[in-house]
Amino acid sequence: MTTLDFPLDDARRLVDIALDEDLGPDALDVTSTSTIPADQAATGHVVAREAGVLAGAPVIALVLEGVATRTGGIPPSLEVRIADGTRLVPGDVIAVLDGPAQQVLMAERTLLNVMSRLSGVATHTRRWADALEGTGCTVLDTRKTTPALRALEKYAVRAGGGTNKRMGLFDVAMVKDNHVLAAGGVGAAYTAIRARYPDITVEVEVETTEQALEALEAGSRFLMCDNMSTDLLRATVAAARAWAGERGEGVEIEATGGLTLDVAAEYGATGIDYMSVGALTHSSPIIDLALDLA
């Protein structure tokens, strides 16, 4: 089973917080401990209730371990049958848990909450990746993530066939209109970043072909075309690539702003390299997963 570079430390932190929320300071499930003998065994199946793309299966083991640690119990055995990134159909058995029934039920909601969320992101991303297939354009995520879930949500994007852009404000410089205004121009903003961080990637946001050429003259080789029509975007791509080609250089071009699945292929065919979509992480509905006792 591929892990797609699963962010294990981030997942552990999330599971700790989630279990603290669900089990409280005394690690209690008052219903299960009252109605189920401590030595009663159970088999639980984590199943898909709807079609989608799986993400987050490694979380199951972390939740089981976390519950056992908190309660002093024995964690159920675990068999994960489906790898992250796999397309699901209703009824697919993702994993099988065997062990103390109390432990299984204490873990149920936490593992389902995380996996349903991540699988929703992966499923949404897969729709964009499928829509762009054959265009040469790759779908990117953004920083519009759920606080404290960024590493996991970006992992889910990868599981769905997308690509991560920047992880935060620290790894890519993105010059937007406020930076241009504060610095006194595109050239001044680019020069200031390059002087302080000579090895960092610098992307410049543009809204017109003229601004794109200005950014190239300033030194940027990564353009983010914001809220352009397909005609304007196609013209900007052609002008930018011609400018760079005359100098024997390359340029990467990204489109963003107001994009929907209905027009993804049309925009992807304009010659852009990337399409960034904040909705991958801020507006993906969950995928319905369940844990059924056999």
Rank of each mutant, 00 (worst) to 15 (best):
T3A: 14
P7Y: 09
D10G: 13
R12Y: 00
V15N: 07
V15L: 08
E21I: 03
D22Q: 09
L23E: 04
A27G: 02
L28W: 00
D29A: 04
S34H: 11
P37C: 08
Q40L: 15
A41D: 15
A42G: 14
A42S: 15
T43A: 09
H45A: 10
V46E: 01
R49K: 15
E50G: 06
L54E: 01
G56L: 01
G56M: 10
A57E: 11
P58V: 13
L64F: 07
A68G: 06
A68C: 07
R70S: 12
R70M: 03
T71C: 03
I74Y: 05
P76F: 01
P76N: 08
S77N: 12
L78M: 06
A83E: 15
R87T: 15
V89Q: 15
V96F: 00
V96R: 05
D98K: 13
M106V: 01
L111R: 07
L112F: 11
N113K: 12
M115L: 15
T123Y: 03
T135I: 08
G136R: 04
C137K: 09
T138Y: 00
V139G: 06
V139S: 06
L140A: 01
L140Q: 05
T142K: 01
A148R: 08
A151T: 06
A156Y: 08
V157Q: 00
R158V: 14
R158S: 02
G160A: 07
G161F: 01
T163A: 13
V172H: 11
D177Y: 11
H179N: 13
L181A: 15
G185L: 05
V186P: 05
Y190E: 05
D199T: 14
T201D: 14
E203H: 05
V204H: 04
T208R: 07
R221F: 07
M228I: 05
T230E: 10
D231C: 06
L232T: 11
A235P: 06
T236D: 12
T236E: 11
V237R: 04
R241F: 09
E246D: 15
E249K: 12
I253W: 08
E254I: 09
Y267G: 04
M275K: 05
S276E: 02
S276C: 07
G278C: 00
S283E: 01
I287V: 15
I287T: 15
L289C: 12
L291A: 10
A294C: 09
